[in-house]
Computed example of a mutant assay.
Amino acid sequence: MLTLFIVVIIALNNARLGAIEQTKELQDIINKANELTDATRELDTKHADYFQYYPEYKKHKLAISVNFPISSASMNNIPDSTKNDLIKAGRILRDFISKTTQDNPHIQYLLIIEGQASRDKSNFNYELSYQRALSLKRFWEENDVNFNGTNCEVLICGSGDGKLSGTGLMREKEERLNQRFLIHILPKPGKIGDKYTKK
């Protein structure tokens, strides 16, 4: 009985030490994620012409007035000056992520390109907003703005006209201004070491 008691005490102590170590490592990961989230806010201080950060939504708005024509997702329907601004914005974004991940090679980013649509009578605003986001991704690639090799995963999504989400977040009062893009830059700091994960 005494031997069993000693074994249990040792096991509990080891578990307590492991939990303390795991908590410290988790806190380090959280701190690093917070640092990287703060770093993304540099985009709107250094590049306010291209990006605006909204802390209440934790999102960046691409500060370029794209204003697709209604029911259009074609980059051909956008003025050349706007296209040039979109290329510059893409390069700024790519260079920012590349530099940040070089400084922190164990960190990855999730870049979400979100298309939006204005509220009109169309039943295809979600499909249209997705096509707009996809058009921007393809347009960037055609102009040598790639995120390959930057520790960055790129996702394409469309939030339509916001009716189905029920939140109306990040919507402009003037509907034509909602024919645009939102950019989400999320740091993925990694996971707790394998010694803490279940096999």
Rank of each mutant, 00 (worst) to 15 (best):
32 K>D: 12
50 Y>I: 05
45 T>N: 08
75 M>T: 04
34 N>K: 15
33 A>K: 15
71 S>N: 15
63 A>W: 10
63 A>S: 05
32 K>P: 01
53 Y>C: 04
44 D>K: 02
42 E>R: 15
84 N>Q: 14
48 A>N: 14
66 V>T: 01
39 A>V: 06
63 A>E: 07
79 P>S: 06
76 N>I: 06
34 N>A: 11
47 H>Q: 11
83 K>C: 07
57 Y>A: 07
42 E>V: 13
37 T>R: 13
38 D>A: 13
54 Y>G: 02
32 K>L: 15
39 A>C: 03
34 N>V: 10
67 N>R: 13
30 I>L: 01
44 D>Q: 11
42 E>I: 14
42 E>T: 15
37 T>N: 09
69 P>V: 04
71 S>Q: 15
37 T>W: 09
31 N>D: 15
38 D>L: 13
81 S>D: 06
57 Y>C: 01
53 Y>H: 09
42 E>A: 13
31 N>F: 13
84 N>I: 00
70 I>P: 11
41 R>N: 12
50 Y>T: 02
47 H>D: 07
37 T>Q: 10
33 A>C: 10
67 N>S: 02
28 D>H: 12
66 V>G: 00
68 F>T: 04
34 N>R: 05
80 D>G: 01
67 N>P: 00
43 L>A: 09
83 K>M: 08
28 D>L: 14
49 D>F: 01
76 N>H: 08
48 A>G: 12
70 I>G: 08
74 S>C: 04
79 P>F: 01
72 S>H: 11
52 Q>D: 02
47 H>S: 10
66 V>N: 01
69 P>N: 05
76 N>D: 11
52 Q>P: 00
35 E>T: 07
61 K>H: 04
32 K>I: 14
43 L>N: 09
78 I>Q: 03
49 D>I: 02
55 P>I: 03
47 H>C: 06
31 N>Q: 14
63 A>H: 04
69 P>W: 09
78 I>R: 10
40 T>N: 06
74 S>Y: 09
39 A>W: 13
73 A>N: 09
59 K>P: 01
53 Y>Q: 06
44 D>Y: 02
73 A>S: 14
69 P>Q: 09
51 F>V: 05
74 S>M: 07
67 N>K: 11
41 R>Y: 13
54 Y>I: 06
41 R>T: 15
58 K>E: 14
57 Y>T: 04
67 N>L: 05
45 T>A: 02
28 D>G: 11
36 L>I: 14
72 S>V: 08
66 V>R: 00
53 Y>N: 03
81 S>W: 04
77 N>G: 03
65 S>E: 08
65 S>I: 00
83 K>F: 12
44 D>A: 04
76 N>E: 12
29 I>P: 03
72 S>I: 08
29 I>S: 03
60 H>N: 05
62 L>R: 06
78 I>A: 05
82 T>C: 02
52 Q>C: 03
80 D>W: 03
74 S>D: 11
83 K>I: 10
38 D>Y: 14
48 A>K: 15
36 L>P: 00
50 Y>A: 01
66 V>Y: 00
41 R>P: 06
73 A>H: 11
